[in-house]
Design a protein around this nucleic acid. Structure first.
Lengths: 156, 156
DNA sequence: GAAGATATGTTATAATATATCAACCCAAAA
DNA sequence: TTTTGGGTTGATATATTATAACATATCTTC
C-alpha cells in the first residue's frame, strides 16, 4: 500500500490538476463534463473531504445551480461511474478520486475521530487471482478501513 | 482467501448450529440474547441472504413481535456489534455472520445478478502491518467485492 | 428537419435510519 | 427491604439518503 494521503500538499495545485485531468479524460472519452458535473467535482476537490450529497446540494443551491436532489445525484452518478469520485459506503458520502485515470482498486482509510478519509490503493492482482480460482468474477471493489488517523491517534 | 460459500450445505443444521453458538457466546460474555434479538438472528440465518432492515421488520411485524423501525435496528445493532451479523454497506442490508466467534476480517462477495452474498475472510496481518507503518490504527474493515458469482457467470 | 440519444428541470415519494422520552425489568448496593 | 443504576423495550415523531416519473431541452447525425 502506498500514497496514504495523510501528508500535507499544495491544495490549490491539486484542485487545478485534478480538474484539468478530468477535462482531458472527458474530452478523450467523449464524456460531457457539463457545468454542474464540473462544479460538483470542483466542490469535492476544494473541500477535500467526504461530503454527503445534501451537503453538496446546499452549495449548488447557494450558487443557484440547482436545489433538487436529482441534480446532485445525477452529477455524482456521472463522477462515480467514470472514476472521478468515489462513494464511501460506510458514510453515505462522496469523495473526489485521488487517482483519476489510473485503473485502481481503492482502499479508504476513515478516521472515526476527525472523519478524514484517505484514499490508498492495493494491487488487485492477489485478490483477483484468489477470487478467480473460485469462479467469482470481480467487477468492483470497496475496501473500507475504519480507525484512527495518525493525528487523532497522537491526540488521544 | 478460503470458504467462499457458494457451495451447497445442510441449511437446517447450519441454522441450529449458529443459534447454539450465539447462545453459548452470549452466555459466556454476559450478553442478553433476548427473544427479539434471537428471532432476528434466526430470520437472517433461515433466509441465508442479505436482508434489508425493513424486510426483517415485516417478518417481525407479521409475528406480532414489533412493528416500528427501532425494534429491528436495535436488534441489528446488537447482532452487528457483537459479531453475530454484518452490514453489507453497498446494499444497506444485513447478513448473518458465517464465522461467529472467530475474530475475522470479513470480505463479502456480492453477485450483482442474483444478489447472493458470500462471506470469505482475508488474513488481516498484511493490511494491518501496512497501515501500521503509516500510523493509521485499524479498528474495523469492510471489504466488499461486487461481480458475478460462479452460477450467474455460467448463466450469462 | 426529423429521429434518437443525452442531459436537465421539477414534483413527488420511496427507502433507510435515528432522536427522544417514558416505562419496565432485574440485579446488586445501601 | 428499598433503592438505585444499567440495560432493554414501547411508542411517536422525524431525520437522512436516494429514486421514480415525466416533461422539456439540447445536440448530433442521418
Amino acid at each position: 500500500m502506498h500514497d496514504l494521503g495523510f501528508a500535507q500538499h499544495d491544495h490549490a495545485a491539486c484542485v487545478a490538476t485534478a480538474l484539468s485531468t478530468a477535462e482531458a479524460t472527458c474530452a478523450a472519452q467523449k464524456l460531457q463534463l457539463t457545468p454542474t458535473r464540473r462544479r460538483v467535482l470542483e466542490i469535492l476537490l476544494e473541500e477535500h473531504r467526504a461530503m454527503g450529497a445534501y451537503d453538496i446540494l446546499a452549495v449548488l443551491s447557494s450558487e443557484g445551480i440547482g436545489s433538487q436532489p436529482p441534480v446532485v445525484y445525477r452529477a455524482l452518478d456521472f463522477l462515480v461511474s467514470n472514476g472521478f469520485a468515489h462513494k464511501i459506503e460506510k458514510r453515505n458520502a462522496y469523495l473526489a478520486c485521488a487517482h483519476p485515470g489510473e485503473d485502481h482498486s481503492p482502499v479508504f482509510l476513515i478516521c472515526r475521530a476527525c472523519d478524514t478519509v484517505a484514499e490508498a490503493t492495493l494491487p488487485m492482482a492477489d485478490l483477483r487471482r484468489a477470487a478467480d480460482e473460485t469462479g467469482f468474477l470481480i467487477e468492483t471493489t470497496v475496501i473500507e478501513i475504519e480507525g484512527l488517523c495518525p493525528d487523532c491517534r497522537k491526540a488521544a
